[in-house]
Simulated assay, not measured.
Amino acid sequence: MVRRLIVTEHAEPTESSGLTPEQRLSATNTHLLRANIVTIHDIETLRRCVAYENANQNRQPILRQLAERATELREE
Rank of each mutant, 00 (worst) to 15 (best):
M1P: 08
V2H: 15
R4W: 08
I6S: 11
V7N: 10
V7E: 14
V7C: 11
T8Q: 13
E9T: 13
H10A: 10
H10S: 12
H10R: 13
A11I: 07
A11P: 06
E12T: 13
E12G: 08
E12K: 14
P13E: 05
P13N: 00
T14N: 09
T14F: 09
T14L: 15
E15D: 09
S16C: 15
S17M: 10
S17E: 12
G18F: 07
G18V: 06
L19V: 01
T20S: 13
T20D: 06
P21L: 06
P21S: 01
E22R: 08
R24I: 01
A27V: 09
A27P: 01
T30Q: 13
H31T: 14
L33S: 03
R34S: 14
A35Y: 13
N36I: 07
N36E: 03
N36V: 04
I37C: 02
V38M: 01
T39I: 06
D42K: 03
T45P: 00
L46M: 04
R47W: 06
R47V: 04
R47K: 06
R48S: 05
C49E: 02
V50A: 04
A51P: 03
A51E: 10
N54G: 04
A55E: 12
N56S: 12
Q57W: 12
Q57A: 15
N58L: 01
R59G: 04
R59E: 06
I62D: 02
R64N: 14
R64M: 09
Q65N: 08
Q65P: 00
L66N: 03
L66Q: 03
L66F: 04
A67C: 05
E68P: 00
E68I: 09
R69M: 00
R69N: 07
A70I: 03
E72V: 15
L73R: 05
E75G: 11
